[in-house]
Design a protein around this nucleic acid. Sequence first.
RNA 1: GCCGGAGUGGCGGAAUCGGUAGACGCGUGCGACUCAAAAUCGCAUCUCGCAAGGGGUGAGGGUUCAAGUCCCUCCUCCGGCACCA
Length: 804
Amino acid sequence: MHKKFDHKGFEKKWQEQWQKDNLYKAGDRDKSKSKEYVLVELPYPSGNLHIGHWYAFAVPDIYVRYRRMNGVQVVYPMGFDAFGLPAENAAIKRNLNPREWTEGNIEYMKGQLASMGNAFSWDKTASTIDPNYYKWTQWMFTQFFENNIAYRGKGIVNWCPGCNTVIANEQVLSDGTCERCSNEIEKREMPQWMLRITNYADRLVDDLDDLNWPEHIKDSQRNWIGRSKGAEISFKLSTGDDITVFTTRPDTLFGATYVVLAPEHKLITDNKEKISNWSEVEAYIKTTAKKDEQDRLNDTKEKTGVKLEGVTAINPANNEEIPVYIADYVLASYGTGAIMAVPAHDERDFAFAEKFEINIITVVRAKGESSASNEKNEKSILFTDSGELINSGEFDGMDSEEAKVAITEKVGGKLTNTYRLRDWSVGRQRYWGVPIPIVYDPEGKPHIVPKEHLPWTLPEDVDFRPTGEAPLAKSAELKKRTEEIFGKGWTPEVETMDTFVDSSWYFLRYLDNANDEVFTSLDVQKDWMPIDIYFGGAEHTTMHLLYSRFWQKALFDLGLVNVQEPYQRRINRGLILGPDGNKMSKSKGNVIDPDEQVARVGSDTVKMYLAFMGPYGEVSNYPWDMGGIAGLHRFLERVNGLSEHISETEPKEITKLLHKTIKKVSEDIPEFKFNTAISALMVFVNSVEKQSLTKESYDAFLRLLAPFAPHLTEELWALAGNSGSVHTAEFPAYDKTLSKDETVTIGVQINGKLRGDITLSPEATKDEALDAVITKPRFAPYLTAKPAKVIYVPGRILNLIVND
RNA sequence: GCCGGAGUGGCGGAAUCGGUAGACGCGUGCGACUCAAAAUCGCAUCUCGCAAGGGGUGAGGGUUCAAGUCCCUCCUCCGGCACCA
């Protein structure tokens, strides 16, 4: 029966009570319990909690509460990632200081978070704009600088004209736009603060193997890092230089009929006197320099290039003299910026060789072929698979894979890997970020700001509106501060750090946030790290998740952290769409405001609705459905009326169903299948409504439901006369015997066709099952002869094969 | 092009050591209550068929007593990478 309840009458009351009782404080590590560190991605204080935050924080809360009720000491912290462009832009729009704006938002959002009624460990929190936080961000940076992990590099960077700053490779989307503002990214050459994430490429790939992460996330990271196994091989040039190329196919070296350099390659300008067609070459270099990435991609069908007249190379395998070209299909930023071209076995080289009429030599053929496949048919001349070698002197007949090693050895090459990953560009020409703690001496040499001067505070006396120049350059205070501490002629670094730096280590600070000596003591880390489960969004796969893994490894190498991998398990959630099936956006007018929903139907309903939509941890999109949320509200109203069915005794059926429900819920929660757990709870309620249950069963049910509907269950728990909080009660355990069915109904197939069912004990024998069929007239018409074969799977199926 | 993942009612989704496909919820239809409406309750709801029965999990093959689940060939959608040597 439906019994309406007034969520406003008790949700706030219990939230305040829980806070007063410090119910969810994680406290110090209690070694008598096992620990679990459950992390959710800390929010950006945009000023308003949206439905995505609810999905991100309220649903994992079910898991956290469940584990606590099972006696696990769970730390479930929350904080704010408060530096960064959106806050800065929003503040500029409102003509506010970003600090005022952000801090105001944090306060407001804390109130909104409270309305969720989550079991957050508020004693473990951090905010990245807190000077006591960013002090350590800066200190880590200085450690990285001193250990050559952070460096001032020169190179081509991604400039976002919308954000007025440089951004990292990871922050450029595959269509060449900015992940924040969707503006088209420009390439610029300028000095940049970089972190040597590339030095960690192998570990970042290899250590993925042991992580309990969804395979598609690991694959995305592997793709992003883009490790290729191959070899570096040197070719002698007629200029006297050696040119090193990278190839994944050293087995095809005998088929290398020319060499190609990227137009930006240093050896070209170094040898301009020796290049007889220099003006032509120079013109080509200029043309390609003008093309942006996008043009270069669009031009892939038509290969272009210029031969370096007067320069030749020697193929080290057969000492043949071969021509040298420059072409923009070879990228300066990948490998060595030079390739050996094997037109018979590489599509791009093939296209180029055909256009420039260069020699094509087949050196690999499919195994077992008597002739090279390409000799049979002109059109199939290209063969990119591996196979066995031909036209390769002493290596003829050798398998491609073996030949890779053998040929590399013979020519004195080196087996090596190369990567797609580039170093992480972390300097930003914006105001609202952590100042890079570097100062320059009068010669312009960079030095770290020593620990006693940290935090190296963000100056206040600047016009922070973005112009493309770093706003900190305009701070008289920063300039003065630098000269006072370091001496006349010293100047401060004026760039701030990428926000992704701040969020690369926040989970460590949560644990020991009052520590003034170190960012987090090793003892505390040993208590809690690694993070057992990290819930988050798919957008972080090759950004935050990659950066923070690198950061942790870099700290590990400096002896500052206890584990190499921060996150043991990763769960990516899906996306909540608007009721129209589109991504929620103000312009589409399809935004669901969680505050409105909570006011209307209550926090418990919103939480359960989100948990019921589909399995958590599968990246799919769920449209918000007003009818759907009403269904969950109805369910909780029925729960509210359930106490009317309490009686002295209950049918055996209800006892058994309760234990089956406990079993199902306890199995589903750890797998984040909250949807099917809720479904089981609904089945139980549907059944009880027609019958009765004891007070004992009622209490057990409340505890079962407590992680999903913390407020209502707490209210009903108290109304039922129980003492203490339902959330500190033990989660019910199921009785194995009671959770099993005494009889099962199984399908009966005759010749593989379903003809009906029989009900019998799960342990019934084949003969008993056959008897049940024979005595049921329903089956008689089909049993025209004695079954030739009987397949019986107890509790599952009975299949009779009747030959007629 | 390469690497992953996914295709099940009108909708969200259940069911995969191969064993009664469509749990649970939404929506819809009919009925009850009501002067009426809302709320609530009951029944129905994959599809064709009065029924008996037939068909059905993106398409087509295959293995099996039995296939949403395994194998092969395709198609579509989603995510990552992409002139990456």
